[in-house]
Structures are given as C-alpha cells and as structure tokens.
C-alpha cells in the first residue's frame, strides 16, 4: 500500500494532527518506506491454529465499591483553561435552537444504527 501526501493528510485529519504540506511530503516518504517493510508480513502464512492472543489465565475485576474522588482543584489544576468549575474549550458546534444544553444526552452510541446491514 503506497502512501502519498494526500493519504498522509487524510490520516492526519483523523488523528487531529496539524501537518503542513511540506511535512506531509516528508512524512509520506518515511511512512511509505516503513509500510513497504511492514507489507512483508502479508506473505506470512499462518498455521490454522495460530494460537490465541489471550495469555491471561485470570479475570481481573473490581468490586463495586465507591472510593474517593479528586478534589475539583486537583482535577482542574493542570488544565489550560477553566472557570474554576468546568474545563473550558473553544466552542464545539453551533446548535440549532440556541439554548444552553447538553448535546450529548443521547450522543454516545454514534453512528452504529442498523449495524445489522441493509434493510
């Protein structure tokens, strides 16, 4: 899989990395050579029973006991911008309807609807 400048820019956007066009050119060269090496893996033929990835012979869980949380000051103290109560970030999105609201009330779950396929 050859990697060019556009591919680098596409991946950089996914990874939220600012990459200048010049950097992208250089990175494309580096990544292309690395991926070429990695591509050698494709020739590896694996036995049918190629082993399990889990080498854990244990399940580790936690009992449901609540403990101490950090103080708010400790939680916020390393942040670039706060108002003493919240972490502050530049505006996320413009919401229709205006009002202060929690846009995530139902956002978890994302775009997975109908994973079951075509219908």
């Amino acid at each position: 899989m050859p990697i060019d400048r556009d591919e680098v820019l596409r991946i950089a956007a996914l990874a939220r990395l600012r990459v200048s066009p010049e950097e992208a050119e250089a990175l494309a060269g580096d990544l292309d050579r690395i991926v070429a090496h990695i591509d050698s893996l494709r020739e590896v033929e694996l036995p049918d029973d190629s082993g399990s990835l889990t080498y854990f012979d244990q399940d580790v869980h936690r009992e449901d006991r609540a403990g101490e949380s950090l103080s708010r000051d400790d939680a916020l103290k390393n942040a670039a911008e706060t108002d003493g109560e919240f972490f502050l970030v530049p505006q996320v999105v413009d919401k229709p309807g205006g009002k202060t609201r929690d846009d995530r009330a139902t956002r978890s779950g994302g775009d997975d609807a109908g994973r079951g396929g075509d219908r």
Partner: peptide, 10 residues
C-alpha cells in the same frame, strides 16, 4: 511521535 501516531492511525 507524529510519525507513529500516523502509522498507527493508518
């Protein structure tokens, strides 16, 4: 670090 993040994201 950027190189590896990009490689992994890819």
């Amino acid at each position: 670090v950027k190189r590896r993040i990009l490689l992994g994201t890819f």
